[in-house]
Amino acid sequence: MITLTHFLLVSACIFCIGLYAVLAKRNAIMILVGIELMINASILNFVAFSRYDKTNYGGQIFALFAIVLAAAAVAVGLAIILNVYRQFKTINPQNIHELKD
């Protein structure tokens, strides 16, 4: 039987992968992907916990809401990355240090 714990476990794994991608990747796209993974992990949690809200399906609705927002964020993020690439000819965030002292 698949319990809430399994969902949470999977969600945690996805979150960790996302976190790893965000922290370790040298590519802004991959970081964006990591972020998406972390959002999806939370969405999964919303969906899993919505089992306890059978009247309003708040979790489900929030999940949809989050998916939409994530899509929008990705669009904006990609646009920024594109601009960054145009500006710096790279999308490695380590090499973009104009604000550093």
Binding site: L19, V22, L23, A24, I31, P93, Q94, H97, L99, K100, D101
Partner: peptide, 17 residues
């Protein structure tokens, strides 16, 4: 401490983590 403030978002996050 200066090295903490290196402008790398990733390190900030790493520290936060």
């Amino acid at each position: 401490v200066r090295h903490v403030q290196n402008g790398q978002l990733q390190s900030y996050l790493g520290f936060a983590l």
